Computed example of a mutant assay.
Amino acid sequence: MQLGRLAGFDRQRFLAEYWRKQPCLITGWLDPSPLEFDRLLDLADACDLPTRLVRGSSENEDWSVDHGPIGKMDLPEESRDWTVLVQEVDKVDPAVAALLEDFRFLPNWIIDDIMISQAVPGGSVGPHLDAYDVFLVQAKGRRRWELADGSSFRADERFELALLESWVPEFTIETVPGDVLYLPAGVGHHGVALDEAQTWSVGLRTPSGPELLFELAETVLGRPDKAQRLSLERIDPAQSDGIPSELIAQARAQLEACLEMDDRQLGELLAAFLTRWRLWESDSEVEPEQIHGKLRAGLELPLALNARLALLGHGEDMALFVNGERIEAPARLARELSVRRRIGPEWLEAPDALEQLIGVDAIGPLPGPRIVSSRGD
């Protein structure tokens, strides 16, 4: 395994040389303002965000994990060797979500969330690997990263955390604010805070084959042309409980029939699934009258922080999918929404599409005061 290095971010070079190929340290790319720890804990509590407290070190092999909610009174008294992880922070904090604008060269539907890791010196979650790509943005302090090919290690079954056994790194690097470490899926990594550190983890995730099969089953379950049941044509009375080879062949044929769909049908199934899959549900509601009023006043409205979208097709045949639904919008508006992620007055000319966006809670928050409603690196 090799480690690439970039001084500043070059999108074309990154995609050509490093994306899905090898880890890469990008220095001087992103330097977000760290979130105050009290603010992070308050957001996790108010918005019921998935939260974990991880304690331990590789030296002592004493890893433990507590699942949230976690408040200030739950934090360890020790000054070393613990970390708090809060997932989905981008869904509830616009300043955190703003970091994702630097990742718009990637498909919107691949971006899972921003998880924030707050660690004291020595804080870590142990050596592990992820089944998805991740960008690790150093927002505060310093962190030492050890990297190795994850396929050469076995899982350590002693702990609840999915750790790697007998960890031996191939590379060791140190990140400071402004640095971003990109890790393709399957790269083993072990990050240890060298002082009080905060790391923002931008996780990228796509569904697995079994998850796609579940979606396919949901899609074809109600279709009459796929409702044919197994038919037992021949029974051996001497062994009536036996499953004959003809039934196995029939089952295979029926499963293959469920998979029969052209590229358009499969594309629509995939676009709907990718924009609905792992969708973060928000409790905030925006009244349609408010949206229409703002648009008539000439204002532009942002997409909701949790909105997921995808484009399917090309030219005037391009289709827009948002939060699992196909939005019947003109191709021009679809392309513009994908780039700018804002709704302007021109959407009043496509009232049906606008109503669809409102119906899938894709618009908001509106300009003005905002009320906040209530992974491992």
Rank of each mutant, 00 (worst) to 15 (best):
D10A: 00
F14W: 02
K21N: 00
Q22R: 05
C24G: 01
T27A: 07
S33Q: 05
P34E: 03
F37C: 02
D38R: 13
L41Y: 00
D45H: 15
D48G: 12
P50I: 11
P50M: 13
T51E: 10
S58N: 11
E59G: 12
S64C: 09
S64M: 08
V65A: 05
G68T: 11
I70N: 06
G71M: 06
K72T: 11
K72L: 15
R80D: 13
R80K: 13
L85T: 05
V89W: 05
V92R: 04
L99F: 01
R104W: 06
P107G: 04
S117I: 04
V120K: 05
P127E: 01
A131Q: 06
Y132I: 01
Y132M: 03
V134H: 04
F135E: 04
L136Q: 02
L136E: 03
V137C: 04
Q138H: 04
A139E: 04
K140P: 00
W145G: 07
W145A: 00
L147D: 04
L147C: 05
S151M: 07
S152E: 12
S152Y: 08
R154L: 15
A155L: 15
D156G: 03
E157Q: 14
E157S: 13
S166P: 03
W167T: 03
V168D: 11
E170T: 10
I173F: 00
E174V: 09
G178I: 01
D179K: 00
V180I: 08
L181M: 00
Y182C: 02
A185R: 13
V192Y: 06
V192G: 04
L194H: 11
L194F: 09
A197C: 15
T199V: 13
S201K: 09
V202H: 01
V202N: 06
L204D: 03
P210C: 01
E211M: 06
E211Y: 07
L213F: 12
F214V: 12
E215A: 15
V220L: 09
L221A: 12
R223M: 13
A227P: 00
Q228E: 13
Q228R: 12
R229N: 07
S231Y: 06
E233C: 09
R234I: 10
I235T: 11
S240D: 05
S245N: 10
E246N: 12
L247C: 08
L247D: 10
I248E: 04
A249K: 14
A251T: 10
Q254C: 08
D263H: 10
R264V: 14
G267A: 10
G267T: 10
E268M: 14
A272H: 08
F273E: 07
R278C: 04
L279D: 01
S282Q: 05
D283Y: 11
E285Y: 08
Q290N: 11
G293V: 02
R296M: 08
A297E: 11
L299S: 09
L303F: 08
A307P: 06
R308T: 05
R308P: 08
A310C: 12
A310W: 04
H314A: 15
M318G: 05
A319S: 13
V322S: 01
G324A: 09
G324T: 03
G324Q: 02
R326S: 02
A334R: 11
R335P: 00
E336W: 14
L337W: 06
S338P: 01
S338G: 12
R342I: 15
L348W: 12
A350Y: 03
P351A: 14
D352S: 15
A353G: 08
L354G: 10
G359E: 09
I363P: 08
L366S: 10
R370Y: 09
I371V: 15
V372E: 14
D377Q: 08
